[in-house]
């Protein structure tokens, strides 16, 4: 076959229905005189017919197509159900995570506070110390109490005792109450 590329392209355009009718008429007229052009046209048509035959043979039956269509719809429904359950499970998971996080934060906060000095412990650890001093202010004895009342009571007792001693001409002892931390 001796057909130029441009002629072959024209034949293809005509085969595909893309060639204007006037140009198609001219090409058909040329085929009457040009045997190569006519042979090329026939070859193009034969090959296309072979392809169409093959594609038609491969076409699925209506029954098979219906099965695939049913499968498509079933898969879509299953997908929808999964999406719904996925949404619910995500919601439940989020709530559960929030609860766990809140619990963890609370537990952590509680643990941190107990590790530090507790105010109550500080209060209970505080002692009251009553020192007995001589005339020069030097401590000669000391007594500790867990409450201020007891310490004051003790100091008053010592005061009364000191007053009695003064009357008797004994040495001067002065009670001094101090607040101490026991650490």
């Amino acid at each position: 076959m001796n057909v130029s590329d441009s002629d072959f392209s024209m034949l293809e355009l005509m085969l595909d229905g893309e060639l204007p009718e006037e140009a198609a008429e001219t090409l058909r007229a040329s085929m009457q005189h040009d045997k190569d052009l006519a042979a090329a046209w026939e070859s193009l048509q034969t090959q296309r017919a072979a392809r169409l035959t093959m594609w038609h043979e491969d076409q699925p039956s209506q029954q098979r197509a219906n099965m695939v269509a049913s499968r498509v719809m079933r898969e879509i429904r299953v997908g929808q159900a999964w999406n719904r359950w996925g949404w619910v499970s995500r919601l439940v998971g989020t709530v559960a995570a929030c609860v766990v996080l809140g619990f963890a934060l609370g537990w952590y906060g509680r643990g941190t506070r107990s590790a530090g000095p507790a105010p109550m412990a500080q209060d209970t650890a505080a002692d009251y110390r009553v020192e007995l001093t001589d005339e020069t202010g030097r401590a000669v004895a000391a007594q500790t109490f867990h409450s201020l009342d007891k310490a004051v009571e003790f100091a008053n007792d010592v005061d009364q005792w000191r007053t009695a001693q003064r009357r008797g001409g004994g040495s001067m002892v002065v009670p001094v109450v101090e607040h101490t931390d026991q650490y």
Partner: peptide
């Protein structure tokens, strides 16, 4: 079974040439 495979096609679609394949 899924896709009908036939030895010949009875001239469907594109014209008389198809039936000769």
């Amino acid at each position: 079974d899924s896709f009908a495979v036939r030895s010949r096609v009875n001239g469907r679609g594109a014209g008389p040439l198809e039936g000769m394949i």
